[in-house]
Computed example of a mutant assay.
Amino acid sequence: MAIRQIQSLIPAHPSSDGDGVRIQRVHGFSNPLFSPFLMIDELKSESAVDYIGGFPSHPHRGIETLTYMLKGHFQHKDHMGNVGELSDGGAQWMSAGKGVIHSEMPMMTDGQLHGFQIWINLPAAKKMQPADYHDFQSDVITQYQQEDGSLIRVIAGDLTIKGITFSGPLQQTGVPVTIADWQTNKAATFNSCLNPDFQAMLYVYRGTINIGEKAISAGTLAMLGSGEGLAISTRGEAGVLLLSGQPINEPVVHYGPFVMNSMEEIEQAIQDYQQGLLV
């Protein structure tokens, strides 16, 4: 079995979004090796001033988002009447499709906030489908504890470990993806099989991990090469998100909250929003 190796490393950079929410961001809108993913935002704070404004009502078209909270709450409201509030360890998925208008508000738990929002592209055939939303509290996230004490949480898609396939609660994404979280408080290893036709990347959010001889520290995204096997090790505490998905071989044009296949489609999205026709 060919083990995936590091192809490139991309450090997250400080940014802000919404009403001044401070985040660490990695994006790959123009990078075909990032596909089907578009962006990863990490929200981490012990100070309310970093996020208190939240993300007031705003539109999207052409993408899906997956929000995953390690620590803290995340409130969602949208034009469809959906109201959801994640607690520690929960996730929420939204498909903007033709259009959605929503607001999001992060809140601390015990003085801490730590979570992620991942943007996933939609193929052209699904960019104008109806919007949809689901949330998944921590108790429905699939978990597997290894003998070394490390914990694997499968949020979306399927992940095979030691010949056993674990399925996350989110299965209806617009393009097949696997999203999982590996956590350990001590030296540990993580080995799994990935779909060889999927592209894959790892975002380290705590500690340092190793793939072969190369070390990847927190706040860094590792783009992985081809192969079926994944082998990760660490000498101490670590946390890492695994993102793997079927690439979308289509043009990507990004403008603010809209991701389409051409500038003409972007201009139409802006016009529809201005005229109240987005949703």
Rank of each mutant, 00 (worst) to 15 (best):
Q268R: 12
D148E: 08
Q274P: 01
A200V: 10
M107C: 04
S167E: 09
I152E: 02
G111C: 04
D135R: 10
V26E: 00
F166H: 15
K214D: 00
L66Y: 11
P32K: 01
G174I: 04
G239C: 03
G90W: 13
A215D: 06
I101M: 06
P130W: 05
E85V: 12
G174R: 01
Y144F: 12
D148Y: 12
E237H: 02
S95K: 15
T65P: 15
L202K: 04
H27P: 00
S262A: 06
A218E: 14
G99M: 03
V154H: 05
A215R: 07
H114N: 14
T184F: 14
L38E: 02
G236V: 01
A222Q: 00
R235M: 07
S87Q: 07
G89P: 04
F34D: 01
F258P: 09
G84Y: 11
G245E: 02
A131C: 10
E267S: 05
T160H: 06
G111Q: 06
A180G: 08
Q112A: 11
G168R: 07
Q92M: 09
A91K: 03
D272Y: 13
E264N: 14
V26K: 03
H134Q: 15
D272N: 14
G157V: 05
S138D: 14
P14T: 06
I118Q: 07
A156D: 00
E104G: 04
Y273I: 02
L243P: 03
Q75T: 12
I6R: 04
P196S: 04
E147A: 14
P196W: 10
G239P: 11
A125L: 04
G168M: 12
K162M: 11
Q75F: 14
M69D: 05
Q171N: 12
K77N: 07
D50H: 13
S15A: 14
I161H: 11
R61A: 14
T234D: 02
H73T: 13
L33M: 04
Y203L: 04
I120E: 01
E42S: 10
N191S: 13
Q172K: 12
S8K: 05
T67V: 12
S16V: 07
L242P: 07
L122D: 06
L70S: 09
L86W: 14
K214T: 06
H76M: 08
Q275P: 03
N210T: 09
F116G: 10
N249F: 05
M223S: 03
T160Q: 08
Y68T: 08
L38Y: 10
G239E: 01
T165H: 06
V252Q: 11
P59M: 05
N195D: 09
I216N: 05
G111H: 08
A48S: 13
T160D: 04
D158C: 09
A125G: 01
K71A: 02
I209S: 08
Q268S: 13
V49E: 15
I63C: 11
S262F: 11
S138Q: 13
N210Y: 15
